[in-house]
Design a binder for these strands. Structure first.
Lengths: 341, 341
DNA sequence: AATTGGTTCTGAACCGTTACGGTCACTTCA
DNA sequence: TGAAGTGACCGTAACGGTTCAGAACCAATT
C-alpha cells in the first residue's frame, strides 16, 4: 500500500495499478501526512518564531527581507515554512508545543521570552537570529555593537558631540519615553542592547558623558513612533546636532518630524538609521546596511544542513556603513572649523 | 500522563507533580506534536499554496498584503501558517501531500496547476483566491472584470481610443511578448483573463477593434518587466495615448520607460495600474484599489470558520477606482474638445 | 455491614503510516 | 532433480499520543 504510492520500484506495475485503482474506488485520499510524519520522524517543515504578532512580519521591511531569505533556503531544501504564532501579550506557549516541525528559527525575540524557552526545550535543532550566543544552539547575526560603533565614529569625526538617540523596544514591557542607563544595560533585546552599547562606547571615548545623552524608546516599530520619539528628544534638548535612530523606520519618522519643525537635514540636524532598507536608500539616509536576506538564508541553511559536525555554529555577517545625504558636520562645528583659530 | 500535561483538573495535584517530576528526570521533552495531531486529527495550521517560488511572496507588495491579512486571521484563531513550497517548474506535488495542515488557502495559481489539483484531492477544507468559482470549495476574490471595465470606461470617457496593454503571465509557459486573442481568451490565470476581458468589452462597446490593440505579456512580475513590456508596446504603436497595465508593479515600470523616452505622464501618455499598492499611491498612479489585506483575512476567516452551513461560499470584495495624476485626456482629444466645433 | 455515589487512577485500544522480516513462487546452476 | 538464489508480495510491530471504560479507593448513606 505504502509502496504503491511511494516506492513504485518495489512492486510490479500491474499490482501497483490495481492497488491504486481500488484505493480510488474506496475513496482513499492518499497517505496521511501526519501519520507519515509520526512514523518517519520528519515533518518536512521548519518553524519560524517571531515575538511579534504574526502579521508584523509582513509590515516591517527588514523582517520581510529576512523572511524572503529564509523562504529561499526552505525552497532549496523543499521544506515548508511554518509561521508560529507567538502573541507577546499572552504567555501562551502552546503554539510552540503544537508545531510539528523539524527545527526552529527564532528571529529577534527578547532573551527572556517564554516562547524562546519553550523552543529550546523542544528536542529539535534550533537557530537563533539576532540573539546572544546561547552556547547550545546555532546562531546567526551581525556585529551590532561594532557597526554602531563605526557609525558613531563617523558622526564624531564630523564633529557631533551633543546627540540624541531613538531606539526600539528594549524589553517586553512598554516604555514609551526616556531610557535610564540601567534599562539600557539590562535590555532584553540583544540587538538594541548592543547598538546602544556601541554608541555609548564610542561617545564615551570621545569624551562625551553618555549618561546625559537623551535616549528615547518606542514599543511599536513604525514611522509614527519615529516621529513622536524624535519630537520627544528634540523637546528634551533642542541643541542636539544629530539624532541617531536604531532603525531606518524610526529614522524615516524622525525625518518627518524634522521637516515638520522646519529643520533642514543635514544642515540643521543630522539623522542616521540602521538596517539599510530600500526606503532608506531612496531617502539617502546615512545608515548601516545589514544583509537581511542573507541573514534569513544563512539561518535556513544552518538549520537544514544535516551534517552537524561542529554544532553549535555561529555565523556573523558583515555590515557596511552607508554615508548618505542625511549626515554632515554640525552647523556650529563646520563654521568653527572654517573660521576658527 | 497526557492528563498531567493537558488536563490538570483530572488528577490530584500531588500525582501531577510526581508525574511531571519523573518525566523531567527521564528527559521527556513533552508531548510530541505530530503524534498528538495524528490522534486528534488537528494539525493546528493552515497551508498556503502559491504557485510562485516561495520567496516571491515576500517580494510582491500585493502578495505581502495578502499574507498579512491571512496571518492576521491565523493569529486570531491561534493557528500556524504553513507556507507550502510549490515550485512551478517542477511538477512535484509531494510538498502538497506532505503538508500536515487542517486546510488550504490557494492564492492566485493557474487553474491547470497540478499543485491545485493535488490540494483539491486532499480531504481538507480549501479556500481559493483569485480563482474561478469551482463550485466545490470556498472562494474569495474581486470582480476583476467589472473593475477593469470601469477603469476602461474612465479612459474612454477621457477620450482614449488607441491604447496598449501590459499584462502578467497568462499561462504556465513563458511568453514574453505579444498576446494573441486566442491566448487572451484561454488564459489560465483567472485574474488576468478577466481583466483583459473587461478591457475588451469596454473598448469594443466604444467602437474600438480590440483585436488591433497591442497586448504584451511578461512572465516575471517586477519593475523591469514593466519597463521592457512598455517599450515593446510603444515600439509597436508609438501613437497610443494610454498604456493600461494589469498591475501597479508593471505600471511603475512603464512610468520609468515613459520617462526614459521623454514622454510626460499624463500629458503625452496616460498610464494606469491595478492593485492600489502603497508605491502606486505615492506615485499618484491611476489604478484600481483592491483590499489585498482584507482578501487574505477573508480567506483565513472562511477557512477557519467551523460552522460550515452553506459551503461552498463565495466572497466578492469591492474595489475602488482611484483616479490619480497619471491619467488625463489624450493630447489631441483635449484640444479637440476645447477648440472643437 | 452492605450499598451507593463519587473521585482518582490505570490499562488498552486506536489514529494511519512506514520499516522490516518472512513467505512463497520462480529461476538458475551444479 | 534438488539446492541455492532472486524477486514480489504480505503481515505485523512500532511511532507517541488521546481517550475512555472500568478498576480501585474512600466516604457517606441505608
Amino acid at each position: 500500500m505504502s509502496n504503491a504510492y511511494n516506492r513504485p520500484d518495489q512492486l510490479s506495475p500491474e499490482l501497483r495499478r490495481r492497488v491504486l485503482d481500488t484505493a480510488r474506488r474506496l475513496g482513499y485520499p492518499g497517505p496521511d501526512p501526519v501519520a507519515r510524519s509520526l512514523r518517519t520522524r520528519k515533518a518536512g517543515a521548519v518553524g519560524l518564531l517571531l515575538t511579534e504578532n504574526l502579521s508584523y512580519a509582513f509590515r516591517d521591511p527588514a523582517a520581510i527581507g529576512f523572511l524572503e531569505g529564509l523562504a529561499l533556503a526552505c525552497e532549496d531544501a523543499g521544506t515548508g515554512l511554518l509561521l508560529v504564532p507567538a502573541n507577546p501579550e499572552r504567555e501562551d506557549v502552546a503554539s510552540v508545543h503544537r508545531a510539528g516541525v523539524d527545527g526552529f528559527v527564532v528571529y529577534s525575540v527578547p532573551d527572556d521570552d517564554p516562547h524562546l524557552a519553550a523552543v529550546l526545550e523542544r528536542p529539535v535543532p534550533t537557530v537563533v537570529c539576532d540573539q546572544p550566543d546561547m552556547g547550545t544552539v546555532d546562531r546567526v547575526g551581525i556585529d551590532d555593537r561594532g557597526a554602531m560603533y563605526s557609525l558613531a565614529q563617523h558622526l564624531i569625526g564630523l564633529g557631533h558631540r551633543r546627540v540624541g538617540v531613538v531606539c526600539m523596544r528594549l524589553a517586553r514591557d512598554r516604555n514609551d519615553g526616556f531610557v535610564t542607563a540601567e534599562r539600557q544595560h539590562a535590555a532584553h533585546f540583544h540587538v538594541q542592547r548592543n547598538r546602544l552599547s556601541g554608541l555609548a562606547e564610542a561617545f564615551s571615548e570621545a569624551g562625551v558623558d553618555w549618561s546625559r545623552i537623551p535616549v528615547v524608546e518606542r514599543f511599536d516599530h513604525n514611522i509614527a513612533s519615529g516621529e513622536s520619539a524624535a519630537a520627544q528628544v528634540l523637546d528634551a534638548d533642542p541643541q542636539i546636532t544629530a539624532l541617531i535612530c536604531c532603525s531606518d523606520i524610526l529614522a524615516l519618522g524622525a525625518m518627518n518630524e524634522a521637516a515638520r519643525r522646519g529643520l533642514r537635514v543635514p544642515h540643521d540636524l543630522t539623522i542616521t538609521g540602521f538596517d539599510g532598507i530600500r526606503e532608506a536608500e531612496a531617502a539617502g539616509l546615512t545608515t548601516v546596511r545589514q544583509p537581511v536576506l542573507e541573514k534569513g538564508r544563512a539561518a535556513g541553511k544552518l538549520l537544514l544542513d544535516t551534517n552537524e559536525r561542529t554544532r553549535p555554529r555561529s555565523v556573523n555577517l558583515s555590515t557596511e556603513l552607508i554615508v548618505g545625504k542625511t549626515s554632515a558636520a554640525p552647523r556650529g562645528a563646520s563654521e568653527e572649523r572654517w573660521f576658527g583659530p
